Amino acid sequence: MKNSSAAQSATSLPRAPRDEVSARSTRYLITMGIRVACFILMVAIHPYSWYTWVFAAGAVFLPYIAVVGANVGQDSRSRAPENPERSLPATPSPRPTPATEHPVIRVDEQRPLPIAERPDREPDAPE
């Protein structure tokens, strides 16, 4: 059973799944874009030298890095937990004073009394 006195802070909640998927997709697309650039530079730059091997390694290993990075969720990131003392109090705020309170008109409805029981009717008056 959860402890109801400890309110959860809104800042300690995880990211929304939609936002997390969007961030992971963006990371994947950027990494794959770098991979395509490495492949093009590997083929296009002449004369071949040591940097050709660096571009080749990028073209070969970046897909693995992109897929692993895209599949890693939020849980793998270490994030300092929020201090629960900073959360909003669970008690309601005090009622406003009458000077700041908005005027409220209250209307109560009830069934009309029968004619014989009405207080404004004279007892001997004809109906």
Rank of each mutant, 00 (worst) to 15 (best):
K2D: 09
K2H: 11
K2I: 04
S4K: 15
A6R: 09
Q8V: 06
S9W: 01
A10W: 06
S12Q: 15
L13E: 02
L13S: 14
P14Q: 06
R15S: 03
R15I: 08
R15K: 10
R18A: 12
R18D: 10
R18M: 12
D19E: 13
D19K: 13
S22M: 05
S22I: 06
A23W: 11
A23M: 02
R24L: 00
R24E: 06
R24T: 01
S25Y: 01
T26L: 07
Y28C: 08
Y28K: 04
I30F: 07
T31M: 07
T31G: 03
T31F: 01
T31R: 01
M32E: 07
I34Q: 02
R35G: 14
R35E: 12
R35Y: 10
V36P: 04
V36D: 10
A37K: 01
F39G: 03
L41F: 03
L41G: 01
V43D: 07
V43H: 04
I45P: 08
I45N: 05
S49N: 12
W50L: 08
W50S: 08
W50T: 02
Y51R: 11
T52G: 07
W53I: 09
V54D: 02
A56P: 01
V60I: 10
L62K: 12
L62W: 06
L62Y: 01
Y64P: 11
I65F: 11
I65C: 10
A66V: 00
A66G: 01
V68D: 15
G69L: 03
V72P: 00
V72I: 13
G73N: 02
Q74Y: 14
Q74L: 05
D75P: 05
S78F: 08
S78R: 15
A80R: 14
A80C: 01
E82P: 10
P84Q: 04
P84L: 01
E85Y: 04
E85K: 11
R86N: 14
S87D: 13
L88W: 03
P89A: 00
P89C: 02
P89D: 07
A90Q: 15
R95Q: 15
T97L: 10
P98W: 00
T100A: 09
T100L: 02
T100E: 12
E101P: 00
E101F: 10
P103V: 01
P103H: 07
P103Q: 03
V104P: 03
I105S: 09
R106K: 13
R106G: 10
D108V: 11
R111T: 14
I115R: 12
A116R: 10
E117W: 09
R118N: 05
R118I: 02
P119Q: 11
P119I: 13
P119D: 09
D120T: 08
D120G: 07
R121S: 12
P123E: 11
P123H: 06
D124P: 08
A125C: 05
